[in-house]
Design a protein around this nucleic acid. Sequence first.
DNA 1: ATGAAAGCGCTAACAG
DNA 2: CTGTTAGCGCTTTCAT
Lengths: 345, 345
Amino acid sequence: MVTIADVARHAHVSISTVSYVLSGKRSISAETEQRVRASIRELGYRPNAGARALASSRTNVLALVMPLRSDMHVPVLMQFVTGVVTAARAHEHDVLLLTQDEGVEGLRRVAGTAMTDALIVMDIEEDDPRLEVLRRLPQPSALIGVPADPSGLACVDLDFETAGAVCVDHLAGLGHRRIGFIGAPAQVYERGTSFAWHTLAGFRGAAERHGAAAASVACTPDHTGVRRALAELRAAGPEPSGLVVHNEDALPALLDILGSDGVRIPDDLSVVAICSDQQAESLPVPITAVAIPAEEIASSAVRAVMRGLGGEPRPGVHLLRPRLRVRASSALPAAPPPARGAPTS
Amino acid sequence: MVTIADVARHAHVSISTVSYVLSGKRSISAETEQRVRASIRELGYRPNAGARALASSRTNVLALVMPLRSDMHVPVLMQFVTGVVTAARAHEHDVLLLTQDEGVEGLRRVAGTAMTDALIVMDIEEDDPRLEVLRRLPQPSALIGVPADPSGLACVDLDFETAGAVCVDHLAGLGHRRIGFIGAPAQVYERGTSFAWHTLAGFRGAAERHGAAAASVACTPDHTGVRRALAELRAAGPEPSGLVVHNEDALPALLDILGSDGVRIPDDLSVVAICSDQQAESLPVPITAVAIPAEEIASSAVRAVMRGLGGEPRPGVHLLRPRLRVRASSALPAAPPPARGAPTS
DNA sequence: ATGAAAGCGCTAACAG
DNA sequence: CTGTTAGCGCTTTCAT
């Protein structure tokens, strides 16, 4: 194994000079630097990570805690993970992957053994037991998701509340007055998953603002679940002319069922979703949707912890603005309600 | 920060005693051990990972190289990743996650800086440039997937060749004599992805053995791609009565299209797939399928590198036996061919 | 602009 | 059964 001492000897300089060439923390004469770099290349030297970590208290590793069974669509989860890895690499960091099931102890372990410089935690629940641990850790951290009390923590997420509202705004703007919401499976809400509740809140608030009749149901992604959800929606009030779907996995079954029931999209029913662009565009009818900007969220979270490592912790909630992309699944309602008090044309 | 010296002082023993209590590498009197453990707990001591790595040349970390854009179904990829993390944790190891795009240099980096004790590489291509690097690395490694020349490497995978054959066997056993194969997108084959070719080879071999007419087509997972694939299949020969699908992502569109074309499954067409159980069971018709045992493969790969760390490198190819699960999508062909030379009943 | 040397916290001989 | 100590390879003062 080639050590820094080998390089120093080979380049006829001291060990510290080699170290400083690598870190750039003090000026080196051009000539010396050339010689050192040549030796490094020639010998194929790579600094030992453990020794570095021990001497500098910096590992250049950040930990990412990933859910085992996700409340979100798995491909989107994957995008978060690869997004974090890619962003971390751009900051000269590697990523240590932990799973949710290690819980609080997992955080304590990697932080306490100094395996990591910082932590990023996904799939945050409203009242997550890990929050208190993160607040007390010496390492900076960032959450992907926003808990009930984000004080003292850096959080990044899509603004799901606005996302829910934007979907309603779009439908209401087209003239829809009866709007249904098809959400995640019931357990997701029971668990207090933050983004699910925020979306629902945004949906309800916007529906109220627009004076639209709104009903919402939970939904499992299989055919049976979707049928049940649609039935519940009908039972809850007047037949909706527009649907907001916050359940990416249920979309294929939903379109399948509507199709075989003879419901045409968007002629008979408009559908707006919160889902990946990929999903929105691979379905039989391209779906008007707010996408989840996973890469952006991931890189923003990495930036947050990097700032923390740089000494400017700046906790706070950073919400990304939702962007609705209009596709073929939304249009004017079949029988637009008479314009009340509108100027006659 | 609490160090081993603090613990030693607190327990009135030497540093080495604390170290040995933790490692169990020499016998300690029960009384001393109790005292040391009590001090560890009381002080909340956690050994510093960097110091450990430096002194012992063991990081207790293994690197996992994950594809960025996978040839496989993303949820299955995810299962591999979580499977590796879970198995690694069971062996007291953490997982450093790298992405494919770091290529050969990524392997050299984590291995050369001694960040990791071992490596697991996914999504291996027939002639992967990383293989030569892995063979030369001092750290043990395991591949998930089997390249053209696996010599000197530990490889784990489902036996895709047999999987392809098993699907044909099942259909042929039911009496099907015209069998189509719907595969992955064309680029997957062009790229030389090993499991795709192996499956196809198994399919072809078995069809030949059974004397069945067989045609195969590549397929993208969208509706257009599936329609095109079906058309190609028809153009290639007689209308198949059975289909083997090795493209999990295309299954929903396939069933959708067949459904709207009035093709009933399994009455008019039997469908057998190689896909996750989850997918097989969430479609409108439960699909007879060979599942990819991702967790098993992952834990087998972890076991392989752990053996390597234990000094018994044992390279070689370990193929898991495919298991076909019969569901509703396969049945006797509509018009069974007359039994030639079979005893009349 | 460069060098010498004191640690960083731990493991594992070596010595009883 | 336990203690002493020499490194592991690097970063970072402190000197010059």
